[in-house]
Simulated assay, not measured.
Amino acid sequence: MSNIVRIETDKRRSRAVVYNGMVFVGGMTADDRSQDIKGQTKQTLEKIEKFLAEAGTDKSRLLTAQIWIKDLARDFDGMNEVWNEWTAPNAAPTRATSQCEMGAPDVLVEIIVTAALPE
């Protein structure tokens, strides 16, 4: 049986969970929410990279991503510009992107990813 490793856990959530050769990174948002969609996306992806590294993997091993955007019509292209520059060459994960009401009014993007650990 595989152990479950929880990273940065509090009463409500873990930032990442490692189990059975996979890393599940919870919903990440930007710390500086005064930024536009490109700035918030860049910050969010940097946080994801940090948690992937802490779990022992990296963005080249992403399996899937879920992206929520506050205003899809306004910000989809800007988010994609940053996303496309960030993803590892020839290693894009499966992905779903949708618009939703965010938990805070100044959050423009939230991203969840799942990645494989190295074998």
Rank of each mutant, 00 (worst) to 15 (best):
I7Y: 02
D10R: 03
L63S: 08
I4F: 13
N90Y: 10
F76W: 10
S60I: 04
P105R: 12
L117G: 06
N3G: 15
E110Y: 02
A73T: 15
E54L: 15
M102L: 06
A73W: 11
E81F: 09
D77N: 14
D106V: 03
A65I: 01
I4K: 08
A115Y: 04
R13M: 13
K38P: 05
K50Y: 13
E54Y: 13
M79R: 04
T97M: 09
M102N: 04
I69G: 09
G21M: 08
K42E: 12
T41K: 07
R12I: 07
M1I: 10
G27H: 07
N90W: 07
T114W: 09
R15Q: 11
I67R: 05
Y19Q: 15
P89V: 00
N90K: 13
A65Q: 03
E49H: 08
K47R: 14
G27R: 09
K47M: 11
G21P: 05
V17H: 02
I48E: 03
I111N: 05
A30Q: 05
R12H: 14
S60E: 02
Q43H: 07
N80G: 00
D36C: 03
L117K: 02
K50T: 12
F51C: 07
W83D: 03
W83Q: 01
R74Y: 05
P89Q: 00
A104P: 00
G103V: 10
V25C: 07
A104Q: 09
G39A: 02
A104G: 07
L72S: 10
D77M: 13
E46S: 10
G21Q: 09
K50L: 13
N90E: 08
R6L: 11
P105T: 11
R61D: 01
D36A: 05
V82Q: 01
L52T: 07
A115C: 04
N20G: 09
V18A: 06
K38Y: 03
D58Y: 01
S60K: 01
I111A: 02
A91Q: 06
A115T: 02
P105S: 11
G27K: 06
L62N: 07
R13L: 14
E49W: 05
E54W: 15
P93C: 03
A53F: 14
R15E: 11
D71A: 12
I67Q: 04
V113I: 08
L108M: 02
V25E: 08
T57H: 04
N90A: 12
T114F: 10
G78W: 10
E8P: 00
Q43D: 04
L63W: 09
A115M: 01
E54S: 14
F51N: 06
D31V: 13
D71F: 08
T94H: 08
M22W: 03
A73G: 13
K70M: 12
T64N: 13
A30V: 06
D75Q: 07
V113N: 05
W86M: 01
I111M: 06
K11E: 15
